[in-house]
Amino acid sequence: MDIPRHWRLRKQRYGLVGEVCEHCDSKVFPPRDICPDCGEEAKTLFSFSGKGEVYSHSTVYDAPKGFDESTPYTIAMVKLEEGPLVTAQLTDLQEKEVKIGMPVEMVTRKLREAGDERSMIVYGYKFRPVMSH
């Protein structure tokens, strides 16, 4: 059980908390402390809106441990509206054909359908087709 590793990531996982570069205003996710655009220090926290669009997608049938009971599932790279790309699963897709460019929004879901009922449940971001309201 990787307890501290998942615990440390809770802000990123639950709320897409990344960073903003004070020098060039670049938004950074995942957080990396050094701005990938200008190379200056970027340690100011920034919460992403969770809105974005599908950059690329595919389906996993042959999965690693922790995911093998959830197959098939859709994996994607999502382009967040603030700029960065993020790797995440798409969810709630039934009847929706996934397309590159499809608008999606962040939801918090179980990341691992752990086969082991004794282990901790890992929650984190996934994306679903935008719901109208």
Partner: peptide
Amino acid sequence: AGPDEDVTTMSIE
């Protein structure tokens, strides 16, 4: 509920 949902995730939304 979907396979990745539970009372926690639904409560969050």
